[in-house]
Write a protein that binds this DNA or RNA. Sequence first.
DNA 1: CTGTTAGCGCATTCAC
DNA 2: GTGAATGCGCTAACAG
Lengths: 350, 350
Amino acid sequence: MNVPNRSLPTLREVAEAAGVSVGTASKVLSGSSDVSAHRAQSVREAAQRLGYRRNSLAADLRRSRPKSIGFVLPDLTNAFFVDLARLLENEALKNGYRLILAHADEDPERELERIRFVLSRQIAGMIVIPCRGFGQATNEIRAAGVPLVMADRVDETFPEHTITIDSYRAAYEGTQHLLALGHRRIAFLANTLELVNSKARADGYADAMREADLSQEVDVVRCGMTAEEIHVTTLRALHRSRRPTALFAGGNVTTLGALRAMRDADLRIPEDLSLLSFDDAPWMSVLRPCLTTIRQPVEDIGHSIWQLMWALINDEQRDTVHLKLKAELQVRESTAPPAHSSAPPGSTVV
Amino acid sequence: MNVPNRSLPTLREVAEAAGVSVGTASKVLSGSSDVSAHRAQSVREAAQRLGYRRNSLAADLRRSRPKSIGFVLPDLTNAFFVDLARLLENEALKNGYRLILAHADEDPERELERIRFVLSRQIAGMIVIPCRGFGQATNEIRAAGVPLVMADRVDETFPEHTITIDSYRAAYEGTQHLLALGHRRIAFLANTLELVNSKARADGYADAMREADLSQEVDVVRCGMTAEEIHVTTLRALHRSRRPTALFAGGNVTTLGALRAMRDADLRIPEDLSLLSFDDAPWMSVLRPCLTTIRQPVEDIGHSIWQLMWALINDEQRDTVHLKLKAELQVRESTAPPAHSSAPPGSTVV
DNA sequence: CTGTTAGCGCATTCAC
DNA sequence: GTGAATGCGCTAACAG
């Protein structure tokens, strides 16, 4: 009863069974109306009866620009990226496109390999959130003549279309919030400075510090990409003699790592240490106190990315787009005035 | 400088440029050694120079059994599934296979659509974690003659190969743990009973309760699939007159929802309410108190799935496999004796 | 070792 | 409307 390797029927078999030509069968099955109702019916019946299933490999090969879009993302562990994937998937589907997910796992080599593979599928467009070390891939994508939209870890210096948030400004404002609370020793946790958005966040932080005459206190910790690395690095930072009174975590994974470190160091939030998180994640909702975060407008970002991609696919956009959306500071409970300043504000060296 | 639509060079062009035949060029580029070093060299050079990239669509069409495996998962938000995806990706890669991720988003229709699409790519095998309502897909996969391994939300009653953990037993033991602590009013939070593993967990819980002469207290709450649904339903359960003294959450998303509800109801863990989580997730590590969980051996599961798939691909496995791994109870801080029983144990009706 | 040939399954002219 | 013919780009089988 279970015929193992009997291959699926082909279009030709269906056509034969229905007593029409392949051409006609093809038209029927791909929804062209230029076929008499009678024949259309019998083709559909035959297809049904034989259990026909179109070989999309062949169809795509023939069409040469499949209705699919590659989406390369660096980390399946990061809620922000996963959210984006879901949004894009839905947007694409509305326009009859499919998303091909490619997971780079924060590894430039794997990323390149993935991009090459996706490219070799003759996709209609490519959306990339680069990982550290993103390099020649751009050229290859360009050479393939495939529309490319880069997102999140990008900025306006990229020659490609980019969509992201204004990391600099958001970090600047976040830092100001902490300063306004009276913090002086604020450490910024950046996963790496090789990523332009992390760099921009660190810069926004540093500039806000400098403008508050706290150049001396600027403290950017490069803490690594995974929650575990971050955990360890942050813990080390917390054990320094002049411990910061506030931590500004540069992303949701960073926040996770930082929280682990704070747990280990047995520090309470916000009594012992304020925590400001760039980006939030579903699990943060169960923390007490609620975290003050900088919320990225994921929906808008996803929507904008697809809008742009759609325009590019339809050749309706020639100028390079650099879109920067605004992230919102959401003040909640994890940030509060420092318990006791070890030095009065005035004594800070200018 | 940026030639937009110049299509990529084809194998034939490379062959011509190198002064050899397509056949030879094909051999070189797919790594056959049956070519003289000299010609191989010039083919590689030509390919390099022209920026040749193999059209894997065409290659796969020709080969008719691409080296890719479909992996259909129901929820990108669930850390367990994502972990599995990463593991499988790596295992597959070791054997030169690629994973095609397909996200069903807990929607049976979308799942079917996804499965059909993946099938239409002539993949070599398919790994499926079904979602509620998983139905005719099985037949279609079978009809396509593609090896199928089903995981997690399955049991030995499935006619397909299945790999999962012993949900019944784990839940049984988990419940015993709570009983041993003195709990009587234990509620089990199941996302849905339509999923066999959730059902098994609920059964394991219920049987443990019955064996402790607590049939009357059996309380299985069907709380929904998303963290938000779960949040709402659980909150309702917590507001009932006879509030449970312990909650047993049937999965990591369920735990998230339950925690939100406990936060809203302002209940402390474990003083007011014990919480036992089936399955853990990275973010749980930052909670205080640490959650008592039932940990699934993700690595083993992923490994076993691939092992089996590999055997199937190579036609080395004919009998149907039903593998059940063991999950481990990890007692931590979120479970403790109930504060004060509102009724002495003895009064419970048998 | 190498070149030639014949399709993989389909969509798409283009005559009729 | 419809069918016959033509490749999409590639691999595999075969003859040299």
